[in-house]
Design a protein around this nucleic acid. Sequence first.
DNA 1: CGGTTTCGTTAATGATGACTAACATCTCGC
DNA 2: GCGAGATGTTAGTCATCATTAACGAAACCG
Lengths: 198, 198
Amino acid sequence: MTTARTPTRNRGNRRTEILDAAARLFAARGFHGVSIEDIGGAVGVSGPALYRHFSGKEALLAEMLLGISSRLRESAVAVVTASGGPGETLDALLDTQITFALEQPALITVHDRELGNVPEPARRQIRRLQRLYVEEWVTVLAELHPSCPAARLRAATHAVFGLLNSTPHSAGELPPEAMRPLLRAMARAAVDAAVNAR
Amino acid sequence: MTTARTPTRNRGNRRTEILDAAARLFAARGFHGVSIEDIGGAVGVSGPALYRHFSGKEALLAEMLLGISSRLRESAVAVVTASGGPGETLDALLDTQITFALEQPALITVHDRELGNVPEPARRQIRRLQRLYVEEWVTVLAELHPSCPAARLRAATHAVFGLLNSTPHSAGELPPEAMRPLLRAMARAAVDAAVNAR
DNA sequence: CGGTTTCGTTAATGATGACTAACATCTCGC
DNA sequence: GCGAGATGTTAGTCATCATTAACGAAACCG
């Protein structure tokens, strides 16, 4: 039986290959709308083979969400510690979020839809990372405009995320080279408006 | 018929009561994450009672999405035909979308997540209404700035929807009276930035 | 009062789907 | 060359769930 689709060395790639395929499927049809068979089929194996790599469907989702939220958080921390003025830091934060949104639309989509399906030990940790990520933004915004109440800054941050993460909906409207500056300009303007209004 | 006595006979209300409860549940756990039993339970009846009101789970979702998309579209048409200058029209469009987002967060959430679960006859119609709604926005934006390519205007429109529909995520951060002007200011600034950039 | 409609109820029924078991195969390190 | 571990496979098992069946009771209509 030559079942091999690709004789290449798939050392540790299977896991990430599975995570990628699952992210696309979850983004398209939702966690409960995707079966283990679907995920297996998407990477060329069938069904229960996944249990060689993950302890279950929920564990797979948990690992996926932990991955994105920690990457997001890490990149924000890197940006914040590395930079100079708050204005530049904000631009850098915007750029990394835009990069994520443009390059990993499926992950970003799953990230803010499927937290409710993560079992409890991991859920708390993901929520914590998400909160820390938001707080990085809020801190930078607060430096930029100390008189603005934190609640308003938090709401503005969520709104900017909504704007940037809308990318999956406008898939195909514009090429990424055009999308990036558009999103940057819109987000920057929205932030300024939020922070400066009467 | 002189009712006044007991509100027990909810003549046509059961249907909308069910639709409301289902919208909340779908928004929270996704279409496939909610059972017919759950929906029935949320309105105090149990399970198969729903089949007295809807022909099935998918039909319920279809009616729900058709309802929102036609209401959105209708209100946009009303605004566009009634108004004067394109600037005022845009503000009015923003305001109605903000009202929907603040008053019906569950519906708005389901509206842009669950289209894929609507069976085919209705799906096309919903997509059509959504497209028409977007085109109302694009037309107004084009009047405001004729030199901007339509694709860019469409992308900007989706981004503004993302911004405004982020409301469910920032639930509780700010009271609606504060949220509305914030969203208005951010959205208006984002639109202007999209339309004016180099 | 009978009869019909309306709106519920509680059992099936039949699919689907997550997960487990039992059984190959391939690649190594030795 | 050989056992061991990693990775697949197919055939259960057991829940859950959408949908249907069969049946009740209140309101409405004459």
